[in-house]
Design a binder for these strands. Structure first.
Length: 960
RNA sequence: GCCGAAGUGGCGGAAUUGGUAGACGCGCUGGACUCAAAAUCCAGUGGUAGCAAUAUCGUGUGGGUUCGAUUCCCACCUUCGGUACCA
């Protein structure tokens, strides 16, 4: 008992952590400035949204990894930029404000304070002097400024970059848009004369079709419950990702960003960046490039031409009908009188359907317009239908349907009894699906007999020569909706005149600050809460302000640039800072941002690059996705039907798999559950009582077990109530407030210390792998740190380190450890780096060695992993300054050279023994010795040796 | 459906170029210290047979290439992540 106490005092991590945290702040240990004598290295974490729930043990996984890596880089001589900040605009703070009346700015400030405290408890080496917050006016001034530049530019396809809109206006005045090749939604051609005749509002509309930030009417994801428009990636399965509310399509005037202009560059430039293949392929899918043919079909009894897009021009002889999207502009005109009623009914049905209904029930639906199109290749008339399976915002919103070679078209044709013409013979390719571009054309006039790829070319040539279409590349990527009807986001630097023409506010009026308000609900007509503030909206004579705010990804699309020069008031970052820090060398964060944030950031960065405002074309050189630390979710089965008004909970083993629908799963606070996270997790009497206390509504619920019933504190059944076991259902899933399974890192740090927590999270497995949190192995790391400490100081607080000269074995061990740890850090294989250090401690303990010449380099080696313990030992060794600014140990080959080599001896590839040979032994010498070995002789017997293989340094194999 | 990642002891995981499968840790078993417990230390720990030496099986399944395969190739199964009426 007494001994134990003294030992604990020797490693009082709470005291050590407090001391060095203060020391680092006082000495600005992690502050970094431009230093042109040193090479820069930029390590970045995806900054968090400061939610009210605080950090859980899942967040730090990436932070710890980047912390170790940045400390290592600093110790190898780099000038390391490793900042942190907060993505502090967002919906939760606003919803919290609606519920509580607490201003988002205030709750956000509180949450950030809590986050910073939690982060500092982990010993992360951020340079807090560079902190950015996206909701800070000094920051969002520049978000607005970049938006202004997007508004003022269009994308010139010939030059392949963004060009000022003023150049375009000049061009329009001279030649109209006849020679313009730009990324645009403008479909009309006009001459200079036409342009000059246009009214201001018309000119404004035309320019909007070119600007990179523009306004358009579009169908947006409208969420009634949240009172806001959501981005496509904020909607999952037709319901809002946050809150799970239904989402419908609604027409609204919205700001958008023309990210599609950059689609090709976003796709191609991925080749030169060091991202994982899976991440690249996710981005590639999202961009969704396809090559095909855009062409026009004539319409019988009409001058209109129907534009379609297809990736399968070869199938043109198999077209038996056309399909328009319900939102297609031709719908009204093409509907003949007798079909009018039915079509209107269908449009009503399709447009008002929520996204969830559209995707969940895959019913085939559609309606005939009564009009016919003419196949330009064979002159056949084909009916034009309307169906919701054709989407307005992909391609042209109209398709030529080929039921023989498209699954959806076929299902549609079968449902409505439309003809199907087989046009491709796939008998040569039995494995091919209808999607594969394989086969030989049949029933196809002049392309009959051609292979599919050949036929595609032939039809494209034909269509192009007829002047009714051309080869075209299409993308799934859509322009990004950039308007939100919210309060807690960046206001737009935009005002409108009476005609509704948008003007930019000049730079010296930025930032446009959020006006203080007390009411945060959106208006009933769906406008942003800002619209309530009439004084603010109309405070410029003759103009009114934009009341929408920008979405979450606005501030996060460029924050990594602001870290380079966070206090600059003249520019978003100085040329000098940008030239020095360049780009992010190493970026770490979760896969959930694989498409959203990373795509938008790349887009903004490329735009800034076009304007010559940043020196690099891509923002993030190397990117790693850390895995998620999942939580354990414990559920109780509750019968959906009450019995006599009483809730019935049923122990898991009594729940029949076939009757699971009759039960609701109620999550329970995991701390009440014994053996949580296993198949045998259960509540005992104490756990049930805690649950009853915690959830008042279940105070009198009945708990049914195999051997009895427990209700209102009374047990009725066999055996004693102390042995009650109510089995729970254990699942692995997200750590979240609603599952009551959040593990706070502070609790773990309090119990074991920050260094142990850090190393344990890294020791769990490869950084990119997801895994459930459990503390089973944490004692192993805790023991390791104590054993490591014990090399320097014994249990009684006696200092053990000696000045003796190390011997060859000790040096060999040290340098082998240095070599492996260094390699592992470079590969981000922190779990094996830690196990290597464990091996070191085990081995050196066996040697009973405490020599400074070995133990001092070890302090430096462990410093990135266990910064507190390392700093403490460094100073106890009599050093000054911070160990984190020391040179990282470098291994020397000469110490690890072995004089002998151990070879496994194999017969026919199977290991039969191990032999040690002189490192300089020749192959012949080895062969000679091996042949004489007893067990080798035994295995060979009298069979002839067919082959002897010696891989130097690896193994010996004899083939008989 | 499509795209991507992964399947190794009771558990987390290791094996970086095809060359000793299971490093390291947890757990478990036995022992030392102790009146006892905790802590700590020592030893053992993939399965099967055997007192043992040893043999044999073994990296999701089935095939293949190779002197030799967790690693490469083909087919399949399972799990996880992403994504989808994308013409």
């Amino acid at each position: 008992m007494k001994k134990n106490k003294i030992y604990k005092m020797a490693l009082d991590f709470a005291k050590i952590e407090k001391y060095w945290k203060d020391f680092w702040i006082e000495n600005k240990t992690y502050k970094v400035d431009i230093d042109k004598d040193k090479e820069k290295y930029y390590v970045l974490d995806m900054f968090p949204y400061p939610s009210g729930a605080g950090l859980h043990v899942g967040h730090p996984l990436g932070y710890i990894a980047s912390d170790i890596f940045s400390r290592y880089k600093r110790m190898t001589g780099f000038n390391v930029l490793h900042p942190m900040g907060f993505d502090s605009f967002g919906l939760p703070a606003e919803q919290y404000a609606i519920q509580t009346g607490i201003h988002p700015a205030e709750s956000t400030r509180e949450n950030i304070k809590m986050y910073k405290k939690q982060l500092s408890n982990l010993g992360l080496n951020y340079d807090w002097s560079r902190e950015v917050q996206t909701s800070d006016p000094d920051y969002y001034k520049w978000t607005q400024w970049i938006f202004s530049r997007l508004f003022e530019h269009y994308y010139d396809i010939n030059e392949n970059r963004a060009v000022p809109i003023d150049n375009l206006i000049e061009e329009f005045e001279k030649y109209g848009n006849l020679n313009v090749n730009a990324a645009t939604a403008e479909t009309k051609s006009f001459t200079a004369e036409d342009w000059k005749k246009m009214k201001d509002t018309e000119k404004n509309d035309v320019l909007m079709n070119y600007r990179l930030a523009y306004r358009k009417v579009g169908y947006v994801n409208w969420c009634e419950a949240l009172g806001t428009v959501l981005a496509n990636d904020e909607v999952k399965d037709g319901i809002s990702e946050r809150g799970g509310h239904p989402v419908v399509k609604k027409p609204m005037n919205q700001w958008s960003l023309r990210i599609t202009a950059y689609a090709e560059r976003l796709l191609n430039d991925m080749e030169n960046i060091d991202w994982s293949d899976s991440l690249k392929s996710m981005q590639r899918n999202w961009i969704g490039r396809s090559e095909g043919l855009q062409m026009f079909f004539d319409i019988a009894q009409s001058d209109k031409k129907l534009e379609i897009y297809t990736t399968r021009p070869d199938t043109i002889f198999g077209v038996t009908f056309m399909v328009l999207s319900p939102e297609h502009p031709f719908v009204e005109e093409l509907t003949v009188a007798e079909n009018k009623k039915e079509v209107e009914k269908y449009i009503e049905y399709a447009v008002n359907k929520t996204e969830i209904e559209r995707t969940s029930e895959k019913k085939i639906s559609g309606v005939f317009t009564g009009s016919y199109a003419v196949n330009p290749i064979n002159g056949k008339q084909i009916p034009i239908w309307i169906s919701e399976y054709v989407l307005m915002d992909y391609g042209t919103g109209a398709i030529m349907a080929v039921p023989s070679d498209d699954d959806r078209d076929r299902a549609f044709a079968q449902h409505f009894n439309l003809p199907i013409i087989n046009i491709i013979d796939k008998s040569k390719y039995p494995e091919a699906t209808s999607k594969d571009k394989l086969g030989v054309m049949i029933n196809s006039d002049f392309i009959t007999g051609m292979e599919v790829p050949e036929a595609i070319e032939a039809i494209i040539n034909k269509v192009e020569s007829m002047g009714i279409g051309k080869k075209q590349v299409n993308y799934k990527l859509r322009d990004a909706n950039f308007s939100r009807q919210r309060y807690w986001g960046e206001p737009f630097p935009i005002i409108y005149d009476e005609q509704g023409i948008a003007y930019l506010l000049p730079e010296d009026e930025l930032p446009v600050e959020l006006p203080p308000m007390t009411e945060f609900k959106p208006t009933v007509d769906g406008k942003s809460p800002l619209a309530r503030n009439k004084n603010w909206v109309n405070d410029i004579d003759g103009f009114y302000r934009e009341t929408d705010t920008m979405p979450g990804f606005a501030g996060s699309s460029w924050y990594f640039l602001r870290y380079m020069d966070p206090q600059n008031e003249e520019v978003f970052a100085s040329k000098e800072a940008l030239e020095y820090w360049q780009d992010v060398d190493f970026y770490i964060g979760g896969t959930e941002h694989a498409v959203g944030h990373l795509m938008y950031s790349r887009f903004w960065h490329k735009f800034l690059f076009d304007l010559n405002l940043v020196p690099t074309n891509e923002p993030f050189k190397r990117l790693v996705n850390q895995g998620m630390i999942q939580g354990v979710i414990e559920f109780l089965y509750l019968k959906k039907e009450k019995e006599n008004g009483v809730n019935i909970f049923v122990s898991k083993e009594l729940v029949d798999d076939n009757k699971q629908d009759e039960y609701a799963k109620i999550p329970v606070y995991i701390k009440f559950v014994k053996d949580y996270g296993t198949d045998n997790s259960y509540l005992d009497k104490d756990g049930i009582d805690k649950f009853r206390e915690w959830r008042e509504e279940y105070k009198n619920a009945k708990f049914v077990f195999q051997n009895g019933v427990y209700q209102s504190g009374e047990f009725d059944g066999e055996g004693s109530e102390e042995n009650m076991r109510f089995t729970t259902l254990s699942e692995v899933g997200k750590m979240s407030k609603r599952y009551h399974n959040v593990v706070n890192p502070d609790d773990v740090v309090d119990e074991y210390g920050a260094d142990v927590f850090r190393m344990y999270e890294m020791f769990l497995g490869p950084i990119e792998q997801s895994k459930p949190w459990d503390t089973k192995g944490i004692d192993g790391i805790s023991k390791f740190i104590k054993r490591y400490w014990g090399l320097y100081e014994d249990r009684d607080g006696k200092w053990l380190v000696t000045e003796d000269k190390p011997n060859a074995d000790e040096l060999k061990l040290l340098h082998k450890t240095i070599k492996k740890v260094t390699e592992d850090i470079n590969n981000l294989s922190f779990n094996t780096a830690i196990s290597t250090m464990m091996v070191f401690v085990n081995e050196i303990k066996k040697m009973d060695s405490h020599k400074k010449a070995v133990l001092e380099p070890m302090v430096k080696l462990i410093a990135p992993f266990a910064p507190f313990v390392a700093e403490e030992l460094w100073h106890r060794l009599g050093m000054s300054g911070s160990v984190h600014h020391e040179q990282y140990p470098v291994f020397e080959e000469k110490y690890i050279k072995e004089s002998t080599v151990k070879y496994p001896i194999c017969i026919n590839g199977k290991k039969r023994g191990i032999e040690e040979f002189d490192a300089n032994a020749t192959q012949d010498e080895i062969k000679k010795i091996v042949r004489e070995l007893d067990y080798v002789k035994k295995w060979i017997g009298d069979k002839p040796i067919r082959k002897e293989i010696i891989v130097p340094g690896r193994m010996v194999n004899i083939v008989i």
